[in-house]
Design a binder for these strands. Sequence first.
RNA 1: GGUGGGGUGGCCGAGUGGCUAAUGGCAGCAGACUGUAAAUCUGCCGGGCUCUGCCCUACGUAGGUUCGAAUCCUACCCCCACCA
Length: 375
Amino acid sequence: MFEFKLEGTNGLARAGTLTLPHGVVRTPAFMPVGTHGTVRGLHPAEVERAGAQIVLGNTYHLHLRPGEEVVRALGGLHQFSTWPGPMLTDSGGFQVFSLEGLRTVEEEGVEFQSHIDGGLRTITPESSMEIQWALGADIAMAFDHVVPAKSDFAHAEEGMERTLRWLSRCRARHAQLAGEAEQTLWPIIQGGTHADLRMRSLEGTLARGPWTGIAVGGLSVGEPKPVMHRVLEELAPVLPSAVPRYLMGVGFPDDLLEGIARGVDLFDCVAATRNGRHGSAWTSQGKVNIRSAGLRLSDQPLDPACDCETCIRFSRGYLRHLFMAEEMLGLRLVSIHNIRFLIRLGEQARETILKGTFDRWSRDWLERYHRRGDL
RNA sequence: GGUGGGGUGGCCGAGUGGCUAAUGGCAGCAGACUGUAAAUCUGCCGGGCUCUGCCCUACGUAGGUUCGAAUCCUACCCCCACCA
């Protein structure tokens, strides 16, 4: 269980197979985000047909509602949500970042003011582990302290070191709770945009191992893309190659390819579904705003090169109509497309890595994608 | 026929002498979104130009008062309500 087999490389790009209690994940792979135990707007069958191998859930959100005890009473997150395959739960660490203003960070843990009812809730490294164990995903994430990209060295250092101290506590608590065959814990590298801090974060993390996977966090939080690329390039040669590397919160289609080219195996991102709900679709030709007046009479699919349920059946004109009429089907159809688009990108990357043609394919793909200047 | 109310930018609807090219909302147009406080948010939205400004045209129609009118006066047209 929790075995990762590296099957091929092409430069820094890797293809592998990750075996988890609930199934196998072939990498590189995009993991759809299902914060509340549902990939927003989609039926699990649709997520499955889009080719998703693993989906996320969120500790913070499920703790607030319905409460992990409810999920556990109803059989755990797999049974509760009827998702039979692999799952990963985020620790609530990202909410330390995204709910800035609604929380206070202290060494013991983080006090949140619930965004639902305003009540105070505390999450500690230990409670995050307890919640995630109750939820029962295959992979639990360490509770980390994410800082904004603009953070200076001192603040990035503080977040990184706290993340390490919390990692020790996460590991200790997780070891008491989790059966080794049921759930594994992955650590998260922090350190902002500072190479030095990233290295120290990695060293500290490895010293607390061994691990079955390692995540890189604190990126795509406002820094320019070249900076994210640089951080990944600095980490690539020093990350252990025997375990999967998970770049948290990324990304857009081009970010996936740029990440894969720098050795990343796993991605997750809300943009596919959020942008889908907002009417923004990724295509092989760049970005398309489905509400554009120019699409009114189009009988073409969203992306002629796409094999998703939306593209094989519906026209751009119809999708635009659904958005203009504020019909919920529109939000769902574009979400389905975007999810499939990223998953397929992972599949294609995997194929070309195994064939040894990834670099060439990726370069051509990005060139075509950017040609229309993001449309 | 009488009495009262009303006619404002694509629509609804504020404004009742200068700060009004005219508040709001809707519709429309464009953009943003990266481990989900988001089916959300932002900008534009009479026309033209040599475009941090200038010039046209605009508040039912036609006149008038005034330095100045969507706002006041007169006539007419149309709509609504009630009465005959």
